[in-house]
């Protein structure tokens, strides 16, 4: 059998579908699949919303003692956790003399961040993310959000932290 014959007869016998129909079928399925994906994204969005409203992130309650002022030298840091929670925090004694407390988890992929003494920058080694040590805002790199922070205040020489109070007002 010549190649011509094969092309003209057998091929069509084996696959008796019009060309236009064949393309229509697969693209129709593709369109349906896209709609399915669309539905999935809609459900995902709904779940995010439901999660945020039904199980809000728990706030830090009350005031918590961290350490004494003289335990952290200028430019030094100290890691701490708050009782009853597993979230790691760092307390930073900036070169300006201020104390700041941030969550130690990078907002990108949760690596732990550290303060680079003398620079005013909190650094994440995983993907070179940088945060401003004064505000927690992102300076460079992939992190999408600022580091969550705690308010620092003092009672005599003792350093205490509590949930940020004026955050809501500052955002508006």
């Amino acid at each position: 059998m010549s190649k011509e014959d094969n092309l003209n007869k057998n091929w069509k016998k084996d696959f008796p579908i019009e060309k236009q129909q064949a393309t229509n079928v697969s693209r129709r399925d593709f369109a349906k699949f896209l709609t399915l994906v669309s539905g999935g994204l809609m459900v995902g969005s709904g779940l995010v919303t439901a999660k945020a409203y039904l199980y809000p992130k728990e706030e830090v309650l009350g005031e918590h003692f961290v350490c004494n002022k003289d335990e952290v030298p200028l430019g030094g840091t100290r890691a701490f956790v708050i009782e009853g929670s597993t979230i790691p925090y760092i307390l930073i004694h900036l070169e300006t003399g201020e104390f700041k407390a941030y969550e130690q988890k990078c907002t990108h992929l949760s690596c732990s961040v550290f303060y680079k003494p003398g620079t005013g920058v909190i650094h994440c080694p995983c993907h070179e993310g940088s945060f401003d040590a004064k505000t927690g805002n992102v300076l460079a790199g992939p992190p999408p959000r600022a580091l969550p922070k705690l308010d620092v205040f003092f009672k005599d020489d003792a350093v205490y932290v509590r949930a940020v109070q004026e955050e809501k007002i500052a955002k508006l």
Partner: peptide, 21 residues
Amino acid sequence: FVASLILFIIGISLLYYLPTG
């Protein structure tokens, strides 16, 4: 979420016009 839902509904209703070949 509402925007996402509307887009999904638009998608679903467009399927009505899907040619059957």
